[in-house]
Every structure is written in C-alpha cells, then in structure tokens.
Amino acid sequence: MSVHETPDPSRRSRKIRAVLAGGLVLGVGAAITLAAWNDSEFATGEFSAGAFNLEGSVDGTAYDEHASEAAAAPLSFSVDASNLSPGDSVSASFAVRLDEATTYDAGVIVDQAGTSGTVSGLTYELTTTDGFGCDSGTASSLVDAGTAVGSTDANGAFDLVSGAEGVDGAPVNLCFTVTAGDDLVQGQSGTATWEFLAESQA
C-alpha cells in the first residue's frame, strides 16, 4: 500500500513566489534591453530673409535709390520743358532695375505720386524702349498717350528680373513723353511725380 504525501502548502507557496520572482526579474531585464535600443536623430535649419531693392537711373549708367517723393530723380527732358506752348511734346528717359543684392523678381506698377502747381492741359505717354533713350525704339506702351498728367491708366505695369548672385538685374528702359494741349494756360507752372511701386514675386 503506497503512501501519498500531502504537499506542504508552505513549500508550494515558496515555489510560486520563486517563479513570480523570476518573472519579475525577467521583466526588469526586458525593460533594460528595450531601453538600450532607443536611438534619436536631430535636424536643424537656418533661416535668412532675402533682399529686395529697386533703383533708378536718369542716364542709364548711374543707378541710385529714390525712395520718396521728396527724393525723386529729376527727369531730363529733350527740350526745355519750362517754355511749352500748345502742341509741344517733350521726352525724358528713365530706367529701373533690381540691385545686385536682390534675390527675387518683381512686379512693378506705375502710379502718379502727386502734382504741385498747375499741370492742366498736359498729357503724357509712358513706353518701354529697347535701350536707354527715347530714340532707342519703342518696345511697348505702359501708359497710353493722352493720359492726363496727374493720373495713370490700367496699363502701367511691367516685370523686373533679378540678377544672378552679386549681379544687378536687367534694367527696364522707359520714356516719358509729355504733350501740351490747346488748353495750356500761359504762364502756368507745375510739377508731376511718378512712383514705380515694386513688389517681390517670391
């Protein structure tokens, strides 16, 4: 007759605790292993603003900034614009470009910045020319002939292209032609200022 031993409850409990303890040890070991496989990558960017500057010239060679109405470049007309009579027309050349530091192309709108004195009886036309000078050949009309001095029309817009790094952009050459009408008043005197408003095409 065989005798069955009754398991000692305390001994069984010790085995379970040992297994659980082993499991806890394995769990801690697994967590450490996972942490050892963590890795990171970092990326950084440097940000700098571009440059944008419009400049003009009354001789096609020397360019400078004329950033306000008070600092406007004085146009040099082909004949004496201070002694007009009805039917007379006078012309003056101007050029604009983006300077060598500019990093964006531009869209330019021609606007009438203001007048002083009396400019009634005067109309003008603004054209682009193939080279600098009103006798260089007309490329296109920006402001139609017959536009009253002191106003603009919807055609007065063109584009400028920036140059390569450290190089001035290609100029757009312009010609203003002012014509005196029959209603010009003897002895009248006035000035007109135009603005070339450039906006970057970034």
Rank of each mutant, 00 (worst) to 15 (best):
T102S: 15
Y124K: 07
V110A: 11
S76D: 10
T147H: 12
A67C: 04
V58S: 15
T118Q: 15
D111P: 02
D99K: 03
D144A: 08
P86S: 14
T115D: 12
T138V: 07
D130Y: 00
F42P: 04
S57F: 03
L34F: 07
D64L: 01
N53D: 10
G87I: 05
G107W: 01
G107R: 11
L98S: 03
T115Q: 10
A67F: 04
H66C: 00
T123V: 04
A101Y: 03
D135Y: 05
N38R: 07
E55A: 02
A31I: 00
V96H: 07
A139L: 08
A95H: 06
S89W: 01
A35S: 15
F94Y: 15
T123R: 11
S140Q: 12
D144L: 01
V119Y: 10
Y104Q: 12
A51I: 02
H66L: 01
G150C: 04
F132S: 11
T127V: 07
T102P: 02
F94H: 13
T103G: 05
T44G: 09
D59K: 04
A95F: 02
A67T: 13
S85Y: 07
V79C: 00
F77Q: 14
A43V: 09
G131V: 09
F77N: 13
F47L: 14
A36K: 15
V96L: 14
E125H: 03
G50M: 07
S40W: 09
E41C: 02
S93D: 07
V143D: 13
F52H: 13
L75P: 04
V110H: 07
I109M: 05
A106G: 10
A95T: 06
N155I: 00
A73C: 08
N38W: 11
I109G: 08
A92L: 06
G156Q: 06
S76L: 07
A43K: 15
S120W: 03
Y124T: 01
E41S: 15
F132V: 03
G56D: 07
N53Q: 10
D39W: 11
S82R: 09
T44C: 00
S40R: 13
S120M: 08
S40Y: 08
Y124I: 02
T115G: 08
R97Y: 02
A92V: 05
S141V: 11
A35L: 13
I32L: 14
L34H: 07
A101C: 04
S40G: 01
T128V: 06
T129I: 06
T33I: 00
C134P: 04
T138E: 10
N38S: 11
V79M: 10
D80Y: 01
N38F: 08
